[in-house]
């Protein structure tokens, strides 16, 4: 299993990670190695096996616990925005979002 540069660019675009042309070739080689490793799973017959999504779903009867509908969170905007790269009037600033 190996990836071509176009696939690398597509994945990098989806993941929003800039990959230069020079890096793309290295990335392709290294990802292909990892995909070779995980390709070993393909031969296993898993017919009729339920996917296991949680570490405990084989063990505990796992059901989602629910929270009571109560608004309990205080306004902590100042503290939460202390680490923000750019804010104005309480809003997080980003380059113009195009619709």
């Amino acid at each position: 299993m190996s990836l071509d540069l176009e696939q690398i660019r597509r994945i990098a675009r989806l993941a929003r990670i800039a990959v230069s042309d020079a890096e793309a070739a290295d990335t392709a080689a290294s990802l292909s190695g990892v995909l070779g490793l995980i390709g070993e799973m393909q031969a296993v017959d898993t017919t009729g096996i339920e996917p296991m999504a949680h570490a405990l779903d084989a063990q505990v009867s796992s059901a989602q616990r629910l929270r009571e509908d109560k608004a309990v969170e205080p306004d902590r905007r100042t503290a939460y925005q202390a680490s923000a790269p750019a804010v104005q009037d309480g809003l997080y600033l980003v380059p113009r979002v195009v619709e």
Binding site: I11, M41, I49, P51, M52
Partner: peptide, 20 residues
């Protein structure tokens, strides 16, 4: 990559089954 369209069953779902 493993979650992207067309590969999910072969990778992610297969991995979850082997996890079991």
């Amino acid at each position: 990559y493993v979650l992207s369209h067309g590969y999910y069953d072969a990778y992610y779902l297969q991995a979850q089954k082997i996890r079991r």
